[in-house]
Write a protein that binds this DNA or RNA. Structure first.
Length: 507
RNA sequence: GGCCCGUUGGUCAAGGGGUUAAGACGCAUCCCUUUCACGGAUGAAUCACGAGUUCGAUUCUCGUACGGGCUACCA
C-alpha cells in the first residue's frame, strides 16, 4: 500500500487568545508535517456562532507568523481543500448527518432546551450528578426513536427545530491505537448520544471534525488530551461514514498545567507569567492579557521551550533550532503525562537564545524598547555593540534597556552611598589625575585605559579595587554592568570624562 | 458520582527486570571576576503506596492513593 502524503491540521476555534498548549499543538503538527514533507493545514472551527469573537482569527494567524509556524493551507494561504472556515462549509454537513439517520446510526431529536434541562434535573442524584442523553434516557425523550414515524415526518415538514444525535450502540468496545498512549478503549454504553447537527444547521465539533478531516484528507490528527473521552464518538463516525481504514492516526497530546492545575486561559496574569503567545485584548471587556512576544521572548526560544515540554530526543540536548526539531521530532517520544509549566526555565531558554543568536537578529525588536523608555538610540551600530556587551545578563528583551540605558543617556541618579563612606581626598586627587591622563589619551581602548588607570592608582598608592567601584558608579550609576573599561571605551573619551567630572562634583 | 488518561528530585525529564537512577532549570557553597552577570566546580533533593510475578523490581501485573481531563445544541 503506497504511503499517503502526510496531511495534518490545527483546528482552533477563534474565541480568544492562543495559549501555550495551542501553540505546542501547532508546533507538533508543523514539525510532523515538515519532517514528512507533508502539508500543514489550519482550519478555523467556528461552528459556534454564539462564541464568535472579532479579531480572534487574525490574532491566531499573527501568532503563527511570529512563531514561524506558517500553515501551507488556510483561509489566508489558500489551498485546494477549502473553504478552511467551517462556517463556510455549513451546507456540506447535513447530508452526512442525514446519511447516519438513514442508516440507523443517528436520529432526530426535538427536545427543547427546557425539556433537556428538566430531564437532567429529574435524573440528577448524588450518585449521578450529570445525567446524560443516552440509552437510559433517550426513550423518554421526544425523538425519532420514540415518536411515530408520521409525527416525525410532519414535525420535520413543519420545520420544527431539531438536532441530530448519534445513537450510541448498547454494548460495544471501541478501541483505537493512539500514537502516544497505545491502545485506548471505551465502552459505548457509557458514552452519551452526542449532538452531531445543531438546530441552527451547524455541525458540532464531533461531526465537523470527522467530515472535514475526511474531506481534507487528513492523515494524522493531533489534539489535546481533553478530547480523549469523545474519541469513541469520532471513531464510530469514521466507521459509519468513511470506514476506519481511512481514519487518520490519532495522537492525544498531554496537557500543559499551571502552578495549580490546569493552565487556564483566563488568569494568565495571576500566575505572574504569560499564557498567550502574543498580547490579546478581549474586544468585549477591553481587558489585555500579556503575551510571550511582548514579554520579550524570542520566537526561537518560545518554540524550543514548547517543543521540549513533553518531548525530548533521548539525548541530553535541550537547545534545538527549528530545523533540528524538524529533523529529530517524533510523536512517539512525546510524554503521556501532563507537564507543569516552569516559567523560570522558560526564561533560561530565552537567555540561551539571546546569547546564541547574533544580536542583529533581534535588534529591531530591542530598539523600540529603548524608545518606549524615552531613550533615543540614534546609532544602531552603537546599540549593536552595547547589546553584545550586555547580552550575557539579559533573560528577556526588555532587560537590554535596563542593562544598556546608561550607554545612551547619563544616569539620572548615582549610588553615592556605595562611594561616600570610603571617600577621601587622596581618591579625589586620584580621579582628577585620571581625568588629566584620559584627556591626553591618544588610544581610547579598554586595555589602554585599564593600564593607565591602574598605573595612576599604583603611583597614588591605591589598590585598584578601591577606585574601581567608584569609577563604575560614575559611569553606570550603580553596581552593575560589564567590565568598566569596556564601558568607558564604548562611551568615548568625552562622555567618560564628563561623567567622572559630574560625580566628582557631587562628592 | 461515572468514564478516560496519567504518576521518576520543587519543576522539566532520561532510563524500562540487576545502574553509583543521567541531564537541565531552580536552590546552596566554592572558584573566576575587586560590580552584576556569564563560565567552571561541588552539594542537597527522586522512582506515590500495597500486593503479586521473579533469584532480583523504579522498570511487568493487579489493586489503592493522588493528580488531571471529560461528563453542553463549546471547542
Amino acid at each position: 500500500m503506497p504511503e499517503k502524503k502526510v496531511r495534518v491540521r490545527f483546528a482552533p476555534s477563534p474565541t480568544g487568545g492562543l495559549h501555550l498548549g495551542g501553540v505546542r499543538t501547532v508546533l507538533y503538527n508543523y514539525l510532523f508535517a515538515k519532517q514528512h514533507n507533508g502539508t500543514f493545514i489550519l482550519r478555523i472551527e467556528d461552528t459556534d456562532q454564539s462564541r464568535f469573537v472579532p479579531g480572534a482569527e487574525d490574532y491566531i494567524f499573527g501568532c503563527l507568523q511570529w512563531a514561524g509556524l506558517e500553515p501551507d493551507e488556510s483561509v489566508v494561504h489558500g489551498g485546494d481543500y477549502g473553504p478552511y472556515r467551517q462556517s463556510e462549509r455549513k451546507t456540506q454537513y447535513r447530508q452526512y448527518a442525514e446519511k447516519l439517520v438513514a442508516g440507523g446510526y443517528a436520529y432526530y431529536a426535538f427536545d427543547t432546551p427546557e425539556e433537556l434541562e428538566r430531564m437532567r434535573n429529574d435524573h440528577k442524584t448524588e450518585q449521578n450528578p450529570s445525567p446524560q442523553y443516552d440509552r437510559s434516557t433517550r426513550n423518554a425523550m421526544r425523538n425519532s426513536l420514540t415518536l411515530p414515524p408520521g409525527e416525525v415526518q410532519s414535525l420535520l415538514d413543519a420545520g420544527a427545530p431539531h438536532v441530530i444525535r448519534i445513537r450510541m450502540p448498547e454494548n460495544e468496545i471501541i478501541s483505537f491505537t493512539d500514537m502516544i498512549r497505545g491502545e485506548v478503549s471505551f465502552d459505548t454504553a457509557l458514552v452519551d448520544d452526542k449532538v452531531l447537527l445543531k438546530a441552527d444547521g451547524m455541525p458540532t465539533y464531533h461531526l465537523a471534525v470527522v467530515v472535514d478531516d475526511h474531506l481534507m484528507q487528513i492523515t494524522h490528527a493531533f489534539r489535546g488530551e481533553e478530547w480523549l473521552p469523545s474519541a469513541p464518538v469520532h471513531v464510530l463516525l469514521w466507521k459509519y461514514l468513511f470506514g476506519t481504514d481511512a481514519m487518520p492516526q490519532w495522537a492525544h497530546l498531554p496537557l500543559i498545567l499551571g502552578p495549580s492545575g490546569k493552565l487556564s486561559k483566563r488568569d494568565g496574569a495571576k500566575y505572574g507569567f504569560p499564557v498567550f503567545a502574543m498580547n490579546w485584548t478581549d474586544p468585549r471587556t477591553g481587558e489585555l492579557t500579556e503575551g510571550f512576544k511582548e514579554k520579550g521572548f524570542l520566537p526561537e526560544a518560545f518554540i524550543n521551550l514548547l517543543a521540549v515540554l513533553g518531548w525530548n530526543d533521548g539525548t541530553q540536548q535541550e537547545l534545538f533550532t527549528k530545523e533540528e526539531l524538524i529533523e529529530k521530532f517524533s510523536i512517539e517520544r512525546v510524554h503521556s503525562g501532563g507537564a507543569k509549566f516552569d516559567y523560570e526555565k522558560a526564561k533560561w531558554f530565552n537567555h540561551e537564545w539571546i546569547k546564541k543568536l547574533p544580536v542583529t537578529h533581534y535588534l529591531p525588536e530591542v530598539k523600540p524598547l529603548f524608545e518606549q523608555k524615552g531613550i533615543t538610540v540614534a546609532d544602531e551600530v552603537m546599540l549593536e555593540k552595547v547589546m553584545n556587551l550586555v547580552k550575557d545578563r539579559c533573560h528577556l528583551l526588555p532587560d537590554f534597556v535596563q542593562q544598556g540605558a546608561f550607554f545612551f543617556a547619563a544616569p539620572a541618579s548615582f549610588d553615592l552611598d556605595a562611594i561616600k563612606p570610603k571617600w577621601n581626598s587622596s581618591k579625589a586627587l586620584f580621579f582628577s589625575e585620571v581625568i588629566r591622563t584620559f584627556e591626553l589619551a591618544a588610544l581610547w581602548t579598554a586595555p589602554e585605559l585599564e593600564h593607565n588607570f591602574k598605573e595612576i592608582a599604583a603611583v597614588n598608592q591605591l589598590k585598584p579595587g578601591e577606585v574601581l567601584l567608584p569609577l563604575r558608579i560614575m559611569l553606570v550609576g550603580g553596581k552593575f554592568g560589564p567590565h568598566v573599561f569596556d564601558i568607558a571605551e564604548l562611551l568615548g573619551k568625552e562622555e567618560t570624562i564628563a561623567r567622572i567630572r559630574h560625580v566628582l562634583s557631587l562628592l
